[in-house]
Simulated assay, not measured.
Amino acid sequence: MPRKGHVRKREVVPDTRFGNPAVAKFISSLMKGGKKSVAERILYGALDKAAEKLGAEPFEVFEKAMGNVAPQIEVRPRRVGGATYQVPVEVSPERGQLLSIRWIISYARSKKGMPMSERLMRELMDAYKNEGSSIKKREDTHKMAEANRAFAHYRW
């Protein structure tokens, strides 16, 4: 981070199929070793399979899954007088999107024994239906924030 001024946000080029920057961010996060076409194939394949099984549009599945996983509140450490408190703070929409992308991809990668498109499809379907590992992570985050509500006055 620079000492003076602020860092400008970069413009994200929308993806080719849905024309949505969030999908482009998801593809970039999914990508390994610069293989963007492989990441696109994995995501689009997973969305198509999930949409077919759920009877919905692929982009609708993606949007609802991302919205369901994004947390509303999280805890941030705050040092006050030698003690570190976990202070609950509201999550901005950009950070919520980032966390939901990160959680969905990490839990899809943690499942073993099947192709990545299958694992991602299952995680997206679970998120769409408000169940699964990434939804549990959001609930744990909310519980942690609720448990530390007493320190909310340390918010900055």
Rank of each mutant, 00 (worst) to 15 (best):
M1D: 00
P2L: 10
G5I: 04
G5Q: 15
G5Y: 05
H6C: 06
V7D: 10
K9V: 03
R10H: 14
R10P: 03
V12Q: 05
V12L: 02
P14K: 03
R17E: 01
F18H: 01
F18T: 01
N20V: 11
N20H: 12
P21W: 12
A22G: 11
K25E: 00
K25L: 10
F26E: 07
F26D: 06
I27W: 04
S28W: 07
L30R: 08
L30C: 04
M31G: 11
E40A: 05
R41G: 15
R41E: 11
G45E: 12
A46F: 15
L47Y: 03
L47Q: 03
A50M: 00
A50Y: 09
K53P: 07
L54R: 04
G55C: 10
F62E: 04
F62R: 00
G67V: 05
G67N: 14
N68W: 04
V69P: 02
V69Q: 00
P71M: 12
Q72H: 15
I73P: 01
I73F: 06
E74N: 06
P77S: 09
P77I: 04
P77C: 08
P77D: 13
R79G: 02
G82N: 08
Y85E: 00
V87C: 05
V87L: 02
V89W: 00
V91P: 03
S92H: 04
E94Y: 10
Q97W: 02
L98G: 03
L99G: 03
I101G: 06
I105C: 08
S106Y: 03
Y107T: 05
Y107N: 07
A108C: 02
K112P: 08
K112D: 12
G113P: 10
M114I: 12
P115S: 06
P115G: 13
P115M: 11
M116G: 01
R119W: 03
L120R: 00
M121V: 07
M121C: 01
M121R: 10
R122V: 04
L124I: 05
D126Y: 04
N130P: 04
E131L: 02
E131K: 15
I135F: 02
K137G: 00
R138G: 00
D140R: 12
H142V: 13
M144K: 09
R149F: 11
F151N: 14
F151E: 06
F151A: 07
Y154V: 05
Y154Q: 02
R155E: 03
W156C: 06
